[in-house]
């Protein structure tokens, strides 16, 4: 009987029906979700593309210099100049704006969720399988429903990126809150701190380096989604990679990939030094 030649549980059919039902009945709801992402993305992208490249390069250089030091400032300027000279400036700005938008939403949702998870064992326990699923489900699996619900393009790309990049900031915020020495929380309570004061005066300031590490991880994960997002029609540095893949043009794929790595290095160094600076 159990020779498994036939499908007994038609889960695939159910999922298809469920997604179809969602698309049919709840389209306005998903359009509403899309709206803030769209606005944020187009604002950032519009800004980055409109500003003359040299100004953007100098701005990034100054940010890197303030965050870390002259060395990183110079490295940033040269890296961005190089990408510009490769002819990928506009793609880089699109990627940057997609990364920034998704990280903004990840931080807005992830830090509060992480704080709740850090303060409540039950919430953490409920959240954990969801986070595991978000991190391990191959992105290709949820690309299809995302396309069906949000159609293709940059906004769908950002949404897919959010799903993938959200877990680390939640996990590390929760970890940071949990790592605060219980005696410090006890001391704050003993001096008459309310629950909110414990959070804002003790837990968040002391968890900040860990939260910043979470933010750094989220940025890195968002960058790693650039190519996959390009598969559902998102622009940016993923686009030349996908194009190179489809046309077997190794040159185009390489400069796209190289630029992603360079942007990743710059963003990683900047956010990492932000985190360690707060530690002092």
């Amino acid at each position: 009987m159990l020779n498994f030649t036939e499908k007994v549980i038609p889960l695939d059919v159910w999922v298809t029906q469920f997604v179809d039902w969602l698309v049919e009945g709840y389209r306005p709801f998903f359009q509403a979700i899309k709206w803030p992402v769209e606005v944020t993305l187009s604002a950032i992208q519009g800004g980055l593309v409109a500003i003359p490249p040299i100004v953007v390069i100098l701005l990034l250089g100054v940010v890197a210099w303030r965050a870390s030091g002259v060395k990183l400032g110079i490295l940033t300027i040269f890296t961005m100049l190089f990408i510009g000279l490769l002819g990928l400036w506009e793609d880089t700005m699109i990627t940057l704006s997609m990364v920034i938008s998704s990280v903004v939403f990840c931080a807005l949702a992830g830090i509060p969720l992480g704080i709740c998870a850090g303060r409540s064992d039950n919430f953490e326990r409920a959240l954990r399988p969801l986070l595991d699923a978000m991190q391990t489900t191959p992105a290709f699996v949820y690309l299809v429903p995302i396309v069906m619900l949000f159609s293709i393009g940059n906004v769908a790309g950002v949404l897919a990126t959010i799903v993938f990049a959200l877990p680390p900031i939640i996990r590390l915020t929760s970890l940071g809150i949990r790592q605060v020495h219980p005696e410090l929380v006890e001391a704050a309570l003993a001096f008459g701190a309310t629950s909110w004061q414990v959070l804002t005066r003790v837990q968040i300031p002391l968890a900040l380096p860990t939260i910043m590490a979470g933010l750094n991880q989220t940025i890195m994960m968002a960058l790693s989604m650039v190519v996959i997002a390009a598969l559902i029609g998102a622009g940016g540095l993923g686009a030349p990679v996908v194009l190179g893949l489809n046309t077997l043009d190794i040159g185009v794929a390489t400069i796209g990939g190289l630029s992603i790595v360079l942007v990743a290095i710059v963003l990683d160094r900047i956010t990492q030094s932000l985190g360690t600076q707060k530690k002092k």
Partner: peptide, 18 residues
């Protein structure tokens, strides 16, 4: 909260300084 702020305070073995 008011009682803890006005009537008592505490000193800890591990100091518990911020």
């Amino acid at each position: 909260v008011k009682y803890r702020r006005s009537k008592t305070s505490m000193v800890f073995q591990s100091f518990a300084l911020m």
